[in-house]
Design a protein around this nucleic acid. Structure first.
Lengths: 243, 243
DNA sequence: TAGGGCAGGATTGCATACAATTTCGGCAGT
DNA sequence: ACTGCCGAAATTGTATGCAATCCTGCCCTA
């Protein structure tokens, strides 16, 4: 029976989609980066047809933007968009927890606690990537505990978009999703203090959202000559991307 | 600026998408209907390439399902899926209203009232299609009043999926979205009784969801010989779809 | 030297051709 | 008659070719 090396035999177009998706949420591809079809086709060893499919899927997820005749770029959500994003996450996650906390099984709570522990480890050894991944998974697990797949899908998309926002607006030196806060939420849930857990979650999401949207425009209209700090002459540098 | 004859100059692939989308939510295409690429390409006068794009877009909206090597069919959401769908809508719409009712401007309330009036008219003259359209628009307007575009997009997708569910599970003779209930919600909002409005909305969504999911399996494992009720001979009918 | 236009290259938009897969019909075997 | 197999037709999957569009750099002009 179709036992293959990859997790579950997946179409090649979806492989391209997943790889790029992962690269974006892991910040290996920065917002604004252009994604020429021919280049990707060469990298993945497929035709442009499959690349286009993947890009359109990513565009629907709002992880890339697709401009007519201009191609694809990694999305650069505006401050306002990020604010709305976390507004929706607060709306969904907090009320979902408030209405469904009683349905979370003991086993699931234990799993959540383990996840927080992994997160703390990753955080301790400075692995911000793993930390961020686990933080996202924490929020998703919360939704999965309610057993509503539609909700999980929606939240998954919102979290992925949030990761792009983090890549754009994160200020260095600050942990985006402090595992302390996650641990506190789980602790309150275990103690049966639902209302307090909801408050903690709301405060948690508010902090993240504000720490992102309070930032000045970090890229884009940079100060230009301040960043370059040199003469305005153009040195004829031809440093295109290397193959 | 950019004033063109069509609403806003749209690519041909998107035209195909919109037309099929509309046909689905208006119940001119029934759940389970197959959508062969070549046939659609001929109908719209474009190549299969554009049809595929449209179908994949629709698949992402969960309005059609795309099985590998088997093509596309209008989605047939399961009872359980419909239940989850309205669970999510209750979660989102009710809490959105509870938290944002105070931000709804007087002008928007007036617009809502007008919409309800149109709905009542459509209902009175038995135009169930227009009535359903307006009912969906009512729920969307409520979200738009909060000024969060992301929320509007999410809710729009959920409402469209709900329309497919209605096509599958609606029991005849019952108005799905009684405009009375909509009118009542608006009235309570105007009166400033937010909590009561939220309750009315929750009850409204609960009723719809239950009226859909309480239905027996409407299609699928039918009684077979009872439904057919005739001789098992095949009359050699060759009534393929006419061009 | 600054500005405008105009090739040339790069990139996307779309259609079509061909390969791979599934489905359906008939035909033989039991 | 009923089941199983096999070939043809239909349908989808993927690649490639060509036209259209956009961008870049150069040249010409004032």
């Amino acid at each position: 029976m179709q036992g293959a090396s990859p997790p579950h035999e997946t179409g090649r177009a979806e492989t391209v989609y997943r790889d790029i998706h992962l690269a974006i949420v892991e910040h290996r591809l920065s917002p604004g980066t252009r994604l020429p079809e021919a280049h990707l086709a060469h990298v993945f060893g497929v035709s442009r047809t499959l690349v286009r499919q993947a890009l359109q899927h990513l565009a629907h997820d709002h992880l890339v933007v697709l401009e007519p005749n201009r191609g694809a770029r990694i999305a650069e959500p505006s401050i306002d968009e990020v604010r709305q994003l976390y507004e929706v996450r607060r709306l969904i996650e907090c009320n979902m927890l408030a209405e469904g906390a009683s349905r979370i099984t003991r086993a699931r709570l234990a799993a959540l606690r383990r996840k927080v522990a992994s997160e703390a480890q990753a955080n301790a050894r400075g692995d911000t990537l793993a930390s961020m991944q686990l933080a996202g998974a924490f929020h998703l697990d919360l939704a999965e505990a309610l057993g509503n797949r539609i909700l999980v899908d929606i939240l998954g998309e919102l979290i992925a978009r949030g990761n792009v926002a983090i890549a754009l607006y994160e200020q260095r030196g600050r942990d985006i999703c402090r595992c302390d806060e996650h641990r506190q939420i789980v602790r309150l849930l275990v103690a049966g203090e639902t209302a307090a857990a909801v408050s903690a979650l709301r405060r948690h999401l508010l902090e993240i959202g504000e720490s992102l949207t309070a930032a000045r425009p970090p890229r884009g209209p940079v100060n230009l000559r301040e960043v370059l700090g040199r003469a305005p002459v153009k040195p004829a540098r031809k440093d295109r991307r290397a193959s």
